[in-house]
């Protein structure tokens, strides 16, 4: 039977996909700006965040509208409530890209502290997790969502490695490096937070597809 609701859900799906694309672009650009010491690109990330915020509100409104008008049940309800949560997670990720861009603006005028090796590695993990997690939502693919969850420890490990190096090899040895080292430390922390948000999305996707709550239940994985 044809359901008008399906068209609404398709539209919602497309909007969340768009949100996902914007967010991925923001992460990509913020890291490119850091690597290339490109102020314009960093500023671009900060400016474009307004349109991501606007899209977040639009998606929220759409979800509330669908709930009010259709009173969805079962799989439809799980899709919409998950969509709302994912929307918020993506917006937070985009905000983190802005944070990275701001740290980058602080760093570009100062001499390079060290060649970036592990931060780009962590960036690859973060970008991969975000991409996979969005794909898992769009395709309702729980296997992909599970893979994202399994990647999170890798991100934590890289973050710890970066932290240790910056503290022990730079800040402790030469206090004058601290202002720059702290910026890089924050960036590593931000990237790891992106991975955490990707993990949250993956958990929500598993709930959406299987109605199974894995959040705060690691034993269920």
């Amino acid at each position: 039977m044809h359901r008008h609701l399906d068209e609404e859900l398709k539209e919602l799906n497309a909007s969340i996909l768009k949100m996902g694309n914007f967010t991925q672009e923001a992460i990509f650009k913020s890291i490119e700006a850091l690597k290339d010491r490109n102020k314009d690109l960093a500023k671009d990330v900060i400016e474009k965040d307004t349109s991501i915020d606007a899209l977040e509100l639009e998606i929220d409104e759409k979800c509330i509208d669908i709930i009010a008008r259709y009173q969805p049940m079962a799989g439809d309800l799980r899709f919409i409530t998950t969509g709302m949560k994912i929307n918020a997670e993506l917006e937070r990720i985009a905000d983190i890209a802005v944070d990275i861009a701001q740290r980058t603006l602080e760093l570009v005028d100062k001499p390079l502290l060290k060649p970036l090796i592990d931060i780009p590695k962590l960036t690859v993990v973060a970008q991969e997790m975000v991409k996979m997690t969005i794909d898992s939502f769009i395709k309702a693919d729980i296997e992909l969502a599970r893979k994202v969850l399994l990647m999170d420890p890798e991100a934590d490990q890289l973050r710890n490695l970066i932290q240790k190096e910056l503290i022990e090899d730079y800040m402790v040895k030469d206090g004058k490096t601290a202002p720059r080292a702290v910026q890089l430390l924050l960036i590593a922390r931000f990237l790891e937070r992106i991975c955490d948000h990707a993990t949250n999305i993956a958990e929500d996707v598993i709930y959406m597809v299987k109605a199974e709550v894995v959040k705060h239940h690691p034993e269920k994985l």
Binding site: P72, A74, D76, R78
Partner: peptide, 19 residues
């Protein structure tokens, strides 16, 4: 039943996909 029905026929009915 209303958030996560087990049977597909239940899901189809309560989400209005029937027929």
């Amino acid at each position: 039943i209303f958030t996560a029905p087990k049977d597909k026929r239940t899901e189809d009915y309560i989400t209005g996909r029937f027929g």
